[in-house]
Structures are given as C-alpha cells and as structure tokens.
Simulated assay, not measured.
Amino acid sequence: MTIILDRAKDLEATATWHRVCPLDELELAWGEAALVAGRQVALFRTADGTVSAVAQQDPATLANVMARGIVGSRGSRPTIASPLHKEVYDLHTGECLTRPDLTLPTFATRLVDGYVEVEL
C-alpha cells in the first residue's frame, strides 16, 4: 500500500501545465484533438465559457475519437457522448452516465494570457 501512495505522490509532483492553443481557436460546443506531451487529448469549449480536457481515447472501444463526440448536458452537468456507441460522460469528472463500469480520464485546464493550458 505504501508503494501506491508513493507512486501517487510521484505522479502529482511530475504533473505540469502545457500550453495547447489560443482560446479563440476553440469553437463553442465543438471538440478539438491535441497532442499534449505525447498524449492525445480532446478539448471542449462549453456554453458556460469553460474549457474541458479529456482523454481522446474512447474507454469503450479504445479508438481515439472523443473529440468528435456530441457535446451536451444532463441537467447542469456538461457532457460528451462518444461518437461510436454514444456512451455519455460528464466532462468535469469523467463519470460515464450510461455505463457505470467506464470512466473517461479528465485533465485540469486553465487560461493564461488567452491560451488554454492542460495539466498532465
């Protein structure tokens, strides 16, 4: 158990922010794929003005397609539906709302001087 805790601390210590693109290059309610530090990430600019970042890889099929998903919401929760089998994920938590056995990795984002940055 100590190894797991130490590994978590190591991962936290090595997480860094990566500048990805200017905010104005992201269209509202449309996904864009980016290669960030060697990892495929899907970025979404939602109606509330926030930018969400999730793994580009669909957890159900392992295909790199999430940027082509359908942006929507469930109540006040912004969502992305996989373009392949339409599993619906919460954009903030990665929780799958249609299949509890699936989770979509999410990444922190921030805006710095008009640019979107993603933490990996």
Score class of each variant (00 low, 15 high):
Met1Ile: 12
Ile4Thr: 10
Ile4Arg: 10
Asp6Gly: 03
Asp6Ser: 07
Arg7Val: 05
Ala8Arg: 14
Ala8Cys: 14
Ala8Phe: 10
Lys9Leu: 11
Leu11Val: 14
Leu11Ser: 08
Leu11Tyr: 13
Leu11Pro: 08
Ala13Lys: 09
Thr14Gly: 08
Ala15Phe: 11
Thr16Val: 13
Thr16Pro: 07
Trp17Lys: 06
Trp17Phe: 03
Arg19Leu: 14
Cys21Ile: 13
Leu23Ala: 04
Asp24Glu: 15
Asp24Lys: 15
Glu25Asp: 13
Glu25Pro: 07
Ala29Thr: 15
Ala29His: 13
Trp30Asn: 07
Glu32Trp: 11
Glu32Asn: 14
Ala33Phe: 04
Ala33Gly: 02
Ala33Trp: 00
Ala34Leu: 08
Gly38Lys: 11
Arg39Phe: 15
Arg39Cys: 02
Val41Ile: 15
Leu43Gly: 04
Phe44Cys: 02
Thr46Arg: 05
Thr46Asn: 09
Thr46Met: 03
Ala47Gly: 13
Ala47Trp: 10
Asp48Ala: 06
Asp48Gly: 11
Thr50Cys: 06
Thr50Ala: 14
Thr50Val: 10
Ser52Asn: 09
Ser52Arg: 15
Ala53Trp: 01
Ala55Gly: 07
Ala55Thr: 14
Gln56Met: 05
Gln56Pro: 07
Asp58Glu: 06
Pro59Val: 06
Ala60Thr: 11
Thr61Asp: 07
Leu62Asn: 06
Leu62Ser: 12
Ala63Ser: 11
Asn64Leu: 15
Ala67Val: 03
Gly69Pro: 00
Ile70Val: 13
Val71Thr: 07
Val71Glu: 12
Val71Phe: 01
Ser73Cys: 03
Arg74Met: 09
Gly75Tyr: 04
Gly75Ala: 11
Ser76Lys: 10
Arg77Gly: 09
Ile80Trp: 13
Ile80Phe: 12
Ile80Glu: 04
Ala81Cys: 10
Ala81Thr: 05
Ala81Asp: 15
Ser82Pro: 08
Ser82Lys: 01
Lys86Phe: 11
Val88Gln: 02
Tyr89Met: 00
Asp90Met: 05
Asp90Phe: 05
Gly94Ile: 08
Glu95Pro: 09
Leu97Asp: 06
Thr98Tyr: 12
Arg99Gln: 15
Arg99Met: 10
Thr103Cys: 10
Thr103Leu: 05
Thr103Pro: 01
Thr103His: 12
Leu104Phe: 03
Pro105Met: 01
Thr106Cys: 12
Phe107Gly: 02
Ala108Pro: 05
Ala108Leu: 05
Arg110Cys: 00
Arg110Ser: 02
Leu111Asn: 04
Leu111Arg: 11
Val112Leu: 04
Val112His: 08
Tyr115Arg: 08
Val116Asn: 02
Glu117Phe: 15
Val118Asp: 04
Val118Arg: 02
Glu119Gln: 11
Leu120Arg: 01
Leu120Ile: 11
